[in-house]
Amino acid sequence: MKKLILTTTALALSASMAFAGGHGKTVRMGTEGAYPPYNFINDKGEVDGFERELGDELCKRAQLTCEWVTNEWDSIIPNLVSGNYDTIIAGMSITAERDEVIDFTQNYTQPDPSAYLAKSADVDLAGGVLAAQTGTIQAAFVAQQGWTLLEFATPEETVAAVRNGEADALLADKSFLKPIAEEDAELMLLAREELIGGGVGMGLRESDGELRAKFDAAIQSMKDDGTLNALIVKWEIGETF
């Protein structure tokens, strides 16, 4: 048994040796690919969205070669710290909890208010059922309020739950909900909004200080010359800087 594992390792070793070397350092950008307008997979099957454009521009400014990879939201942080990609750029709000494990660049969006999506304007939040995606700040918020929380694995399922009446409302980032509410006459955003989280930033390994500094500088330069604001307006990601 043990011998077997070792042989396969050796195979893997020699295989990867063959294509070692070559071009310079590539930075691998990890994203979810299921959270428009931040990031999603377009008809061509490529990563697209606000963060795609932003990330490409940042890499250009920092003179890095970048490559996009998608990963399930559930395991996006463990895979970063174990080195399968170098950054998380996936609409991830900067929170204290996450900051203990990974590092964030400065935020590249204003703190995005979280909005409620519902079928009618007079939903009783405290008495009703609220849907949220598992492992998001919104899910934690709803649980903390003591409201009835219904958790789904993907954002898509939370919207479906409101549509079919399984949940009375859902809580998520406003910029994610806005296009959905505009398109579907049945659904609307409530006037009430919550300010949770400290804006979205890029996540990096704590040991990767150098890379973080590079991206930080690039974000700053985009903030300074207004290109970031233009992107925010284009993709309708809340307030500009």
């Binding site: 990867s16 070692a20 350092k25 691998r28 990879v69 710290v81 080195g83 170098d86 040991s207």
Partner: peptide
Amino acid sequence: QGNDFLVCPAAKLPLSTSPQVWHEIY
């Protein structure tokens, strides 16, 4: 180092320089 799992660059699998397709194969 804390939560990070850091090996030397030469030990990364696949090497971070290798194209995406190798990452997928791996």
